[in-house]
Structure formats: structure tokens, C-alpha cells
């Protein structure tokens, strides 16, 4: 297919009168892992949510597989196979792990459920052990795994991950990053992720964007950004790594 899978063109998003995104351009090609880094409040989560149409962009356009989805309702965007593990995980707390995964597969009405749930359980064996436990009683890391697993159950073409490493132990973060890499390599899954853990994320990604105050100020390959002195001083040194 010609052209990128996802194209965000000079998108502006507002919360009331406050402008959170001021003309953002981002492209994600099929088969890529792309990451977005930036300080707190830069607008990363807002961009993720704008792609999903909640809130909708006030100006600019979001194009997925050549189709303009800027004004589409969220559930229809999801039906185009854009799955998200949103900020705050948002799993269903009173439902069991198993039921949460079923909800993820509701797009196909559980058609591929048995096959896919086995894949999720091999990816995150922890979830298999805990499948009858209520989502709300899982540990933070297990909830993160469930959130990613639930998004994967929808058989996405594009997976959006908002801070998958948030609050997790380094070893688990490593595990989750490896899982993302594996999905990308083996199934050609396209991933667009937001990360505070800039070092790990940039190493994992093919390309990256840096966001400051609702605008993309820098972009390049993962290696380039890792080597860039500005990025190093702002997000890598004195930070987490």
C-alpha cells in the first residue's frame, strides 16, 4: 500500500478554550514501531485520544489507510482496527481477566477468541494464572499486561500504547518491551507508543517524535534521537536513565 498507515496532519485539539495540541504532524508507516516522548503535560495522551476521536480534533485531519477518520465516532474508529491501551489502563475492574479479554474480542463477536487468547496467555503467562481474578484486584503490572492483552484481542492493525511502562519494575518493563518487539517482528504489528522511559522506548523504536507544549519539535530514527544532545539533556540524562 502506498502512503503511511496513519497520518496526523496539523491537528489542533482543544479542551474547552485551552489548546492542548497546536498543529501536530505525525506519520506511522505499516510495520513500524514509532514512539512519542515529551515532558508531562506536553499533549502526548491528548494526541493518542485524538486519533481515537475522543476528543475530536478541531482543526487538521487524521487519516487512517487513506480514510479521513477525524469526525468519526470513537467506536467506529475502533472498528477500523485501531486498538488502544489508554493512559490509566482502563480495564474493567469488576470483570475477571478472562472477561476483560472477551470484551477486547467483541469486535469479531468472539470469533477468533480461543485462538487469540492462547496467544495472549503465551505472551503474558501471568494472565493465564490469574484469569479468574477480578481485574481491579490485579497488581499494577498485571493490569498493564491485561490492558495490552485486551487491546491485542481486537486484532488491531495499529496498536496505540500510552505509557505501557508506567509504574512497573524494570524487569517487567523489559518484558513488556520485548513483547512489543516480538509482536512487531512476528506479526508485523504496527505500534505507536508514548513513553516516559525515553531510553528504552527509543531503543525499541524505528522512529520517534519529541513533543513540547502541544507541538512536535523533533523527529528522526530511534538511533538519531538517542544520539541527539538536546534529547539527551532533556529526557535521558538526570532522568530515569
Amino acid at each position: 500500500m502506498s502512503g503511511p498507515l496513519l497520518q496526523v496532519k496539523s491537528v489542533e485539539t482543544y479542551y474547552g478554550n485551552i489548546r492542548a495540541l497546536g498543529g501536530v504532524d505525525v506519520e506511522v508507516n505499516s510495520g513500524e514501531i514509532v514512539c512519542l516522548i515529551g515532558a508531562n503535560g506536553a499533549g502526548k495522551s491528548t494526541l493518542m485520544m485524538t486519533i481515537c476521536g475522543s476528543p475530536q480534533a478541531r482543526a487538521g485531519s487524521v487519516i487512517f489507510e487513506g480514510q479521513d477518520i477525524t469526525r468519526m465516532p470513537t467506536h467506529e474508529i475502533a472498528r477500523l482496527r485501531i486498538a488502544q491501551s489508554p493512559e490509566g489502563r482502563r480495564i474493567f475492574p469488576r470483570m475477571t481477566v478472562f472477561e476483560n479479554l472477551q470484551m477486547g474480542a467483541s469486535l469479531d463477536n468472539l470469533k477468533y477468541f480461543d485462538e487469540d487468547v492462547e496467544k495472549i496467555f503465551t505472551l503474558f503467562p501471568r494472565l493465564k494464572e490469574r484469569q479468574m481474578q477480578r481485574g481491579g484486584t490485579l497488581s499494577g503490572g498485571e493490569q498493564q499486561m491485561l490492558s495490552i492483552g485486551r487491546a491485542l484481542m481486537a486484532r488491531p492493525k495499529l496498536l496505540l500504547l500510552d505509557e505501557p511502562s508506567l509504574g512497573l519494575a524494570p524487569l517487567i518493563v523489559k518484558g513488556i518491551f520485548e513483547a512489543i518487539k516480538k509482536l512487531n517482528k512476528e506479526q508485523g504489528l504496527t505500534v505507536f507508543l508514548v513513553e516516559q522511559n525515553a531510553f528504552g522506548a527509543l531503543k525499541l523504536s524505528d522512529r520517534g517524535y519529541v513533543m513540547v507544549n502541544g507541538q512536535v519539535t523533533m523527529s528522526g530514527s530511534g538511533k538519531e534521537l538517542l544520539a541527539n544532545p538536546e534529547v539527551r539533556s532533556a529526557y535521558l540524562e538526570g532522568g530515569r536513565h
Binding site: 467506536h75 480495564i91 474493567f92 475492574p93 470483570m95 467483541s106
Partner: peptide, 24 residues
């Protein structure tokens, strides 16, 4: 059934529901 599960999911988290393709 799917509709009943969607009801329960709606009770738990409306935003998550929409992003899973459920018409709230």
C-alpha cells in the same frame, strides 16, 4: 450475550467501551 456484556462493561468504564468498538 454481547449486549449484556456491553452493559456491564459500560457500568465499569464508558471510555474503554468505546475504544473497544462498542456503540455506547
Amino acid at each position: 450475550m454481547p449486549i449484556g456484556r456491553a452493559w456491564e462493561a459500560l457500568r465499569e468504564d464508558e471510555i474503554a467501551c468505546r475504544s473497544l468498538g462498542i456503540n455506547t
